[in-house]
Amino acid sequence: MSGVVVDVRGLAPVQRFINRLANPDLRALADSLGAELESQTRRRIAEEKTAPDGSPWAPWSAVHAATRHAGHSLLQGDGDLLDSVTYQVSGTQIRWGSPLVYAGVMREGASQGQFGTTRRGGPIPWGDIPGREFLGLSAENEDDLVGITEDWLQELMP
């Protein structure tokens, strides 16, 4: 029988690369992306004070500003919201945000009295709260996530 003989001993690195492409560790990628999403959101709250689209957050009302001190800033009183921002990876899905009950109000806003009244009859909340979008992706955030994904793909290469 005539034919061609191929020595496959030198193809082991190629086979390992094909195996990594066929069975990539997406959990590692999702964890890296989740950590970046958390970091981006914390930076938005602590430093940027803007929505993902770049629009500035509404300032405090004069009445509310009078109750704040030098260590407070928009969405930061004692740091609870900032400290609560986290992410969870389930399979290849990433969820990020804050588990705090009031995080949704800070993000979406609320009208005076929207949640009823106190025992003394005062409205909850006592005044309108403008929404301050702190979750989401800016174009720069998306670029950062693409960069992380590209780096992850590069790591798969032999």
Rank of each mutant, 00 (worst) to 15 (best):
W96G: 01
N23E: 11
P56T: 06
L29I: 00
P52L: 09
T50M: 08
G131N: 08
V101C: 03
K49E: 15
E48T: 01
V8K: 07
L21E: 10
P24A: 05
K49C: 04
L21C: 11
H69M: 05
Q112T: 07
Q114V: 01
V105F: 08
H64Q: 09
F115R: 03
G109M: 08
T118F: 15
S84W: 09
I124W: 14
A12K: 10
E150I: 04
G109D: 09
T67H: 14
V14I: 07
T92Y: 11
Q76T: 09
D78T: 05
T41M: 04
F134E: 12
E142N: 08
S2K: 12
I18T: 04
T41Y: 06
G104K: 09
A65P: 00
D31E: 14
E133L: 11
Q76A: 02
P158A: 13
R119K: 13
D80N: 10
I124D: 03
V14P: 01
D7N: 13
S98G: 02
R120K: 14
G147W: 15
S2R: 10
D128H: 15
L145R: 03
M1D: 04
F115C: 03
E133N: 04
W60F: 12
L153R: 14
M1G: 08
K49I: 04
D143E: 15
A51Y: 11
G77K: 08
G147K: 13
A139I: 04
R119M: 08
G3S: 07
E155N: 14
P99D: 11
E38Y: 01
L81R: 07
G127Q: 15
S2V: 05
T41N: 01
S2I: 03
P99I: 01
R9W: 10
R42I: 07
G71K: 12
L100F: 05
G79R: 09
P13G: 06
